[in-house]
């Protein structure tokens, strides 16, 4: 049981920045950013390759920088070349496949052997610290490190979103006309927003890559839908308003999703391969919820009407 919780917390925090990124792109900017899958692998690839070269710590900011570049390409396609936002993401994502292979030395898989990662460095540090409570929590090193990183960046993003530039980015997804009327260039705010979102996705990839000591060219498949599922789960639990709850929701949702995942994995109520299908269905239903509710109320109206109870105005 404890093991399940530990694994869920580990994976929950490691992957949490993906739903946080989607909170920025999908909720704040109102753009479905499909750069996510490839960007996640990009982050993982940069970080694993850097760790392989002996620079695990440097690998994290570099992975984020790579994510910024990926976000910039998508934003450029969308804001300057007027490619629809979904297509912009798909195009970047496709191009990233080759870029990612290139980063991985033209191999579809790269693994770390004895090289240090940020996780192994912390683990060894705790073990050798000779401080009793540090030694006791050694097993939790991955949870601790990923949670600290996630919380720091979540706080930074929250602080950023209430700055003037942050407000402009939020207004961009809320009312584009008003943004232009406030002398803000929406192309600029969308670009900054997508760069930050993709930096967060890459950060998540970077942590996962070093934690698992491996990166696979296909390890990002479906990440965007899982991230959306986490965001939606979190929002259902803790709500969406005021807006800053969204970031907390993303993190909580990520953990809850991994708890569900771990339970399925260990109890074997279902083959774990089913999870992606179930995730896809949950996301589709959650996003379709307003339309489904409308359809049901319309059917109700029709039934009432044919019973002659609906009143003339329902005709």
């Amino acid at each position: 049981m404890l093991y399940i919780i530990k694994t869920a917390l580990e994976l929950g925090f490691l992957y949490a920045m993906v739903p946080v990124a989607l909170f920025i792109s999908y909720r704040v900017l109102d753009i479905a950013d499909l750069t996510t899958d490839g960007c996640f692998v990009l982050g993982a690839a940069v970080s694993v390759m850097m760790a392989k070269a002996g620079h695990p710590i440097l690998g994290i900011p570099l992975a984020m920088l790579a994510g910024v570049c990926a976000g910039f390409v998508t934003a450029f396609l969308h804001t300057k070349l007027k490619v629809p936002s979904i297509l912009s993401g798909i195009i970047t994502n496709t191009g990233l496949y080759t870029i990612n292979l290139m980063v991985m030395g033209w191999s579809s898989n790269q693994s770390l052997l004895k090289q240090n990662t940020i996780f192994s460095m912390l683990k060894n540090g705790l073990k050798k610290s000779n401080v009793l409570i540090f030694e006791k929590i050694t097993d939790w090193y991955a949870v601790i490190l990923s949670a600290v990183i996630v919380i720091i960046f979540a706080l930074l993003i929250l602080a950023f979103l209430s700055t003037r530039l942050g407000l402009s980015i939020r207004a961009t997804g809320d009312n584009l006309d008003m943004v232009r009327a406030s002398s803000i260039n929406p192309a600029f705010t969308i670009t900054v927003g997508l760069c930050i979102a993709n930096a967060m996705t890459a950060l998540s990839g970077a942590m996962v890559g070093q934690y698992q000591k491996t990166v696979d060219i296909n390890s990002g498949t479906g990440i965007v839908v899982i991230g959306l599922a986490c965001l939606i789960i979190g929002e259902t639990i803790i709500g969406r308003r005021p807006f800053f709850k969204g970031i907390i929701a993303a993190i909580i949702g990520s953990i809850v999703y991994r708890v569900i995942y771990a339970v399925v994995l260990y109890t074997k109520v279902l083959p774990v391969e089913f999870l992606k299908l179930i995730t896809a269905i949950v996301v589709a239903l959650a996003i379709a919820f307003p339309a489904i509710r409308k359809w049901f109320s319309f059917q109700g109206k029709k039934i009432n009407h044919s019973r002659g109870k609906g009143g003339k105005d329902n005709a």
């Binding site: 003037r164 407000l167 402009s168 939020r170 207004a171 809320d174 009312n175 006309d177 008003m178 943004v179 009327a181 406030s182 803000i184 308003r241 807006f243």
Partner: peptide, 15 residues
């Protein structure tokens, strides 16, 4: 058209 609905009055004025 003139205001951002999910943002507060204060934030709209700041913009």
């Amino acid at each position: 058209k003139g205001t951002a609905p999910s943002m507060s009055i204060e934030e709209n004025l700041a913009l």
